[in-house]
């Protein structure tokens, strides 16, 4: 790093920081869905990454379709892709819960194995349908280019957009969880399933909706992912480990914890990556997390209440 002036160094830090924010956005969206499913229902959904892939392929398909059949739509398809990606992942999640997960609530280890198997099936389905090669959605023109607040600093517009999307979705999920009657039913079911049923809550329906919602959010993460990477059959599974890390590190039942932990993991990784190799950065991030988890086994944030 010889010959680098202090201001250049600052610019690099800022740009890496924004780079980290894109990763943070995808991680947070993934973790949000996973935290809802894992934290609230105790199901470890190993196939969660594949729901990201579903959202990413949906975006790709819409991109291809709009280029071929409706060029006027090319500039707007991405907005539609976010909604359709959510919808497709939501519906598939709903079906998966109904066909498989609901039979496994009392067997956490089996659900781990079963969802892992599901993830392999889904990956192979993607491979057979879209081929093993990675594909990319064409970004609409308004997402290309960058914002230059000052000489030497380039902030990509797609990163900014993904971040805004993530913020909006996180707020929407928080509002749904903490201010709606449906969210109240979810929180009651989490705390005492038997009792929730005995005050009149249809817990089976709550579970199905919760699982589907978590998957739908992963679908949106998939749409967001297409702006920063290209989509292959295993695109989502590359994120699953990091996502679990975010959920466990943040404390499984705390939304605020999930946000803080996604942010710190993405930023640490992305900043360190500039100074050393990618795998060294990962080693340092992981070691730090393990250290902190040893001291705070319940994660960054936890609920304190008399039991």
């Amino acid at each position: 790093m010889d010959g680098m002036s202090f201001s250049e160094f600052g610019s690099v830090l800022i740009m890496q920081g924004f780079n980290g924010l894109s990763v943070f956005s995808v991680l947070l969206l993934m973790a949000l869905g996973l935290a809802i499913i894992f934290g609230q229902m105790g199901v470890i959904n190993m196939a969660h990454g594949e729901f990201l892939t579903i959202g990413a392929y949906t975006t790709y398909l819409l991109s291809v379709l709009s280029t071929q059949y409706a060029p006027w739509f090319e500039n707007y398809y991405f907005i539609a892709a976010i909604i359709v990606g959510f919808g497709v992942a939501f519906v598939i999640g709903w079906l998966v819960e109904w066909l498989m997960i609901r039979h496994l609530y009392k067997r956490p280890l089996d659900s781990l194995l079963a969802t892992w198997g599901l993830s392999l099936i889904m990956q192979q389905t993607f491979r057979s349908t879209f081929g093993p090669k990675e594909v990319s959605a064409t970004l609409p023109s308004w997402l290309m280019g960058s914002y230059q607040p000052k000489e030497g600093i380039d902030i990509p517009l797609n990163g900014l957009f993904v971040m805004a999307l993530t913020l909006a979705l996180t707020c929407a999920v928080a509002a749904l969880m903490y201010y709606s009657r449906w969210g109240l039913k979810v929180r009651a079911t989490v705390q005492n399933r038997a009792m929730a049923g005995a005050v009149g809550i249809d817990t089976a329906k709550v579970d199905r909706m919760t699982f589907a919602l978590g998957c739908g959010i992963a679908g949106v993460a998939g749409a967001a992912f297409t702006t920063i990477g290209s989509t292959g059959p295993t695109a989502g599974s590359l994120y699953i480990v990091d996502t679990f890390l975010v959920v466990v590190f943040g404390g499984a039942q705390s939304l605020l914890g999930t946000i803080a932990s996604a942010f710190s993991i993405a930023q640490t990784n992305s900043t360190l990556e500039f100074f050393m190799t990618g795998s060294m950065a990962k080693v340092i991030t992981l070691t730090t997390i393990i250290g902190i988890l040893l001291l705070r086994p319940e994660g960054l944030f936890r609920l304190r209440v008399r039991k």
């Binding site: 109240l184 039913k185 009651a188 705390q191 929730a196 009149g200």
Partner: peptide, 14 residues
């Protein structure tokens, strides 16, 4: 429901 507020506990019955 220990982590819900008093009012939220009552609302779960609706």
């Amino acid at each position: 429901f220990p982590a819900l507020t008093v009012m939220e506990n009552v609302l779960t019955g609706l």
